[in-house]
Design a binder for these strands. Sequence first.
RNA 1: GGCCCCGUCGUCUAGCGGCCUAGGACUCUGGCUUCUCAAGUCAGCUACGAGGGUUCGAAUCCCUUCGGGGCUACCA
Length: 397
Amino acid sequence: MEIYSHWAAKFIEQKDAYHCYCSPEELEAVREAQRAANQAPGYNGHCRDLTADQIAEYKSQGRAAVVRMRMPDGGTTFNDLIRGEMAFDHKFVPDFVLVRADGSPLYTLAVAVDDILMKVTHVLRGEDLLSSTPRQIRVYQAMGVSLEDYPVFAHLPFVMGADNAKLSKRNGEVSIAWYRDKGFLPEAICNYLALLGWSPGDDRENLTMKELCELFTVEKVNSSPARFDMKKLEAINGDKIRALTIDDFLTWALPFLIKAQVISGTEDEVALVKRALPIIQERIIMLSEIPAMLKFLFVKDFAIEPESLSKVTDAGAKEVLLRSLKELEPITDWTHDAIESALRTSLIEELGLKPRVAFGAVRIATTGSTISPPLFESMELLGKAASLSRIAAALTL
RNA sequence: GGCCCCGUCGUCUAGCGGCCUAGGACUCUGGCUUCUCAAGUCAGCUACGAGGGUUCGAAUCCCUUCGGGGCUACCA
């Protein structure tokens, strides 16, 4: 606080700033008049050069003063890393308030002073602050900072939501926690976000964190706003998941399974999950899909989903299940190869069924759903005992 | 209203005066593959907002216009 008031006092002393006694109502009236006259709105410089008598008069009226920065004639130019040479005419940059009547500093004063005192080298911010840059630079000037000590400015474009409105806390999903819960990998989010308004210049898009660090430069960021596209984020996330090693995938997957109470986290469970991950890795786009896909391996009270029930109770299905049971029973080497050849021989070749139909029934009986990871691998993971008892159970429905 | 920024397929982008009958990715559609769902693969749809210049030649440069967004506080 003292720092800011120190500078404000200095500015006044230097005549770069002055006390302004205009009341909010008076200012509002001025703005209204300007608007009505189609003029640029802004402070009219009323208190710029008050005489001692005028000041005494205002003070006797009990008016409190704000500190206002004097914008000199001319303009401000600066080089924006993203937009290039920017020029602002001071005719449209009115004298602005630095310190409130109660003595507290305004953002405009505080940021600029902080930038210099903290030796900020780069100011990267949203394009909404673009037009306030001349004011900030004006403060640097008043502070007597030399040009080479100014920070470099880069005004980034907005990211818009699907509705073409600026993405914000009130609009669209912007909480990191939400993405984490959904199972988006940090690398996918960074990769996607980097691609929003930027590209490495060639056709590469799937970039690792390391590549991103090496390739990304603010200068290559576009000046036009980008729309957030969940579909593309999902696609990238899917790619990232597929690129994971099984061990890394396991590390990411376990918390989701535990949270969904599919597993409690015992060694046996983890081992089984690890064996199962390869068959689901290429069929999910978010980690949060994992529990639903692997649930059938762990549930105690197994049940077939209601909407698929009718598909295992008809005569055709019963026959398929009965035959499957018979053929699978003798298998001692419970591997997906053995299971597949047994079922193919009996159901497809001997019964002459279409794979789609035959395996569909077995799939529902063993996994409880029409949609599942590959059937034979799933049955292998489930184990012989559970697989057979589920088929047998389905026959009684 | 004033000032400022932005404008290539539905979306993200490549493009920096001739390499553009505009490339890639996501989405979508169709095919292949296939035990479901995915993944993979092949093909297709679809864009330089509009109008004028400049030039032998423009998506690329200039002007106008239209559209979108921002700022316009004793907010940050």
